[in-house]
Nucleic acid binder design. Structure first.
Lengths: 145, 145
DNA sequence: ATATACCATGAAAATCATTTTCAATAGAGG
DNA sequence: CCTCTATTGAAAATGATTTTCATGGTATAT
């Protein structure tokens, strides 16, 4: 799984006439070995611990490339930080965000997707992406009250 | 309808011990007399044309108050600009965004809301808000191709 | 291998949206 | 009219992201 994403990115780099570099590999490994929904800064700090001379700008640039190559997807939960999650071909999920502790759970639901397509169609739209986020309080935080 | 929103905001201002000012009224009128989904800058420029000495910061601050008072809702379509839309009590709608011309249509769907609640419940969440946006190409843009 | 051409990098400066600061001003109630 | 305190506008500050630019690295042709 990770191998195929590495390959996917390397193919993308080659196809675009870009270069394969040490930093890109470091960032790629770092990204693939983390939980989803990591903010740019979190990833930067994590990498920085092991490779102190990696640049902030390089992490930003490289994550954008990941998104372009299709192995990552940009997400924003309204906290002013851009996050990147792992993207898998043909697969999509949505998010449940706890507004108290910040936990993020993923879910996917066929029925909702179908309804979305139907709504879009009714309005004359050809949809290519969507974003669905449910904000609330998770069970742990509810018990803690 | 507009009158009741004005009243709603004035009540909010009074309840919070805030003051009713000329600027707030100007911004309120400006906001109420525009289409939905206006960005802060757009509103600022529109107001600025008539009232050249209104401050940027005041528009920001006032729009936040509108959101707190319940007559407006903050939205972001991922273009790096915060927008505000008219909010009506007990009413919620979602968005269809055309990624080509930028048009935004609103819709609402009972069935989807119900499914969302069920999903949240299944995951132990108590949901208080959600955000659903469908991104695609609108019918006009599709014909234009 | 070596040269060549061009891409990528890191650090710092620049940018963009938004927020805060601060001194001056203006509401609300006495 | 006075006083108290919230509000305003301008400018500075902030935080996230992007760009600049001189230097270094990579791929490909030689």
């Amino acid at each position: 799984m990770k191998l195929s994403k590495k390959k996917q990115f390397h193919d993308f780099v080659a196809r675009r006439g870009l270069k394969s570099t040490r930093q890109r590999d470091i960032i790629l490994d770092g990204f693939l070995s983390t939980d989803d929904h990591m903010s740019i800064e979190e990833l930067y700090l994590k990498l920085r611990a092991k490779y102190p001379n990696i640049g902030y700008a390089t992490v930003y640039r490289t994550l954008k490339l990941f998104a372009e190559s299709g192995i990552a997807r940009e997400i924003q939960f309204g906290d002013g930080q851009t996050r990147y999650e792992h993207a898998a071909e043909g697969e999509h999920h949505d998010h449940l965000v706890c507004t108290r502790c910040g936990e993020v759970q993923e879910f996917s639901n066929e029925a909702i997707e179908k309804l979305q397509d139907k709504i879009a169609e009714d309005h004359g739209y050809l949809v290519h992406t969507h974003k669905l986020e449910l904000y609330g309080i998770c069970s742990k935080c509810r018990k803690r009250e």
